[in-house]
């Protein structure tokens, strides 16, 4: 089966993306080897740490997705994206514009602006956003290559709290919808994939697991299961029982 994830003209076989929150090298290796990650997010603000350049530790064949975390507005996001490109992180950029230190919710308005500015600069923008249909459309029009709605506030462990709104994005937006932030368990990743999400981004769920390697494997299986179910066509699971006698049986043909 040729089921590729295509983002900005680039093809990926894996639908698991490692987020950047709790970043360390063991985690990267577990995610790549055992969760099959081909894309690894990296906060530029951590690039030069870890006694040396972290880019040297990224396994071959892995696409880096630098993010603009730390940016409080579109202008700052553009500056950080350019720094990332100069550091050798490539053209992909996950846009994160956050102006709230408590819930760390993305600022959709500034994110859409950043999307437009970065697309014009030749980047492949992947905006992290609050799942709002209008904002998602603005981001599509601004040149986004994928839309990355949050499932729940970062660190809340609430799973797919925004499920219905992500479902609308999946239906209405013709770009890959990558569910980001809030996925705490493989079952939630599976649920999102089953619904038609194109990929899952997770970090904390694996980083803080009792056994990183086993949890990475669990995510891999869950994502494959959800994707397979989606492709198999779960169809509409009716939420009400159907009447045993047809309601329209009285009609005279």
């Amino acid at each position: 089966m040729n089921d590729k994830l295509v983002i900005g003209g680039h093809e990926f076989s894996s639908r698991f993306i490692l987020g950047s929150g709790k970043f360390d090298l063991d985690l990267i290796h577990a995610a790549v080897e055992h969760a099959g990650a081909e894309i690894v997010t990296l906060a530029l603000r951590r690039v030069n740490s870890f006694s040396g350049n972290i880019l040297e530790h990224i396994p071959a064949g892995v696409t880096l997705l630098p993010n603009t975390s730390g940016a409080r507005n579109a202008g700052e996001a553009v500056k950080i994206a350019k720094l990332a490109r100069e550091a050798g992180c490539g053209e992909f950029i996950k846009i994160e514009v956050i102006h709230d230190s408590k819930y760390l919710l993305p600022d959709n308005y500034e994110t859409a602006r950043a999307c437009e500015m970065l697309a014009k600069e030749g980047f492949i923008p992947m905006p992290y956003m609050y799942p709002d249909l209008y904002a998602a459309r603005d981001m599509v029009n601004a040149g986004a290559a994928a839309i990355m709605p949050l499932a729940a506030p970062i660190g809340s462990n609430q799973g797919l709290a925004t499920k219905q709104f992500i479902r609308i994005l999946i239906e209405e937006i013709d770009l890959p919808i990558i569910v980001d932030a809030g996925i705490g368990k493989p079952s939630q990743a599976c649920e999102a994939m089953e619904m038609g999400a194109a990929a899952i981004m997770a970090n904390t769920a694996i980083a803080t697991a009792g056994n990183i390697v086993e949890m990475a494997k669990a995510f891999r299986h869950a994502i494959i299961a959800g994707r397979t179910a989606y492709l198999a066509g779960t169809g509409r699971v009716l939420d009400r029982a159907s009447a045993s006698s047809p309601l329209t049986g009285f009609l005279q043909e």
Partner: peptide
């Protein structure tokens, strides 16, 4: 241990 998690803009 994290020595830096910040970028000055």
């Amino acid at each position: 241990p994290v020595l830096n998690d910040y970028v000055y803009i």
